[in-house]
Design a protein around this nucleic acid. Structure first.
Lengths: 87, 87, 87, 87
DNA sequence: CACGATAAGAATTGGC
DNA sequence: GCCAATTCTTATCGTG
């Protein structure tokens, strides 16, 4: 309570610094990823689709199927055609 | 230059007020939309899929097909199966 | 759900229509805002600056609140009590 | 493009791999951050407050800059000149 | 464990 | 036509 700048304060500072350091590292990586997408774009790839590919690879097949199934259901309920495949 | 609170100031204020008023209205509508999604969710619908349905309806068929085609292309280039129906 | 096939089509359609209607209204307002900016530009104002002014006015109240909040937060975090609003 | 079929598969694969590799690294860091929060919690800190502190510290510099900026902006908008940095 | 809130990420839009 | 900025979406996290 009456230890301004004392133990609790030091600990707090330490945690804050560790987290902020890690967040910086994380930001560097995020920027790297952005760079790769930019490079891919420069080479003629469609970034939006590329992102979708990455995202599809991440998902488990089962997951994909389930989402597709619900989408199908909704589309049919609305009298629309089967969902191309925009998962 | 030396008309503080003068003509330019009045005009500026007027424009700012008109815009801010419209942005408020816009926000009300956005909130209404959120409410509808929430209500749909409460009724048992899957909000994520519902959003996707809305978005698909917005797109022209041609647009959809084109995106699908590119996706297919990429997936094949990577040796992955056709999108979605990994049967 | 008392529908043959899986999804309550009527309900779904109703939700979709409500959302699409609201999105249209929203678009109208967005266009109105654009018009006002265009008019301001025609009157000689710098649109970029005008946008910035609007955006800054939107943020200011929050900033004040947050500055107040951070003191409180630090003190709580250190086990001390805030100035007066020790909720 | 000198590939039979449409897309430069090797390039695409290379981009995908680079991105996926970076995303893995990013995930490791995210997990590290989580660990630090968990540790802080174990030491008796309130994680929610800690998060808020981090987030506020991130925003503060921007706020200061923006507060300075708004004066300038208003003056420019009114055709007056800023204090000293009339770039 | 579902819900709501917050934050990260992605996509669209507008300006240069 | 590209870059930047806003806006919309998705995912994570804490809470009841």
């Amino acid at each position: 309570m009456s230890d301004p700048g004392g133990v609790a304060g030091d600990q707090l500072r330490a945690f804050v610094e560790r987290i902020e350091r890690l967040e910086e590292e994380k930001k560097v990586i995020s920027d790297d990823i952005k760079d790769v997408y930019a490079e891919a774009k420069g080479t003629g790839f469609d970034v939006k689709i590329l992102r979708k590919v990455i995202s599809l690879r991440k998902k488990q097949p089962h997951e994909r199927e389930e989402e597709d199934a619900i989408l199908d259901l909704y589309m049919h309920a609305l009298g629309m055609n089967g969902p191309a495949n925009d998962a």
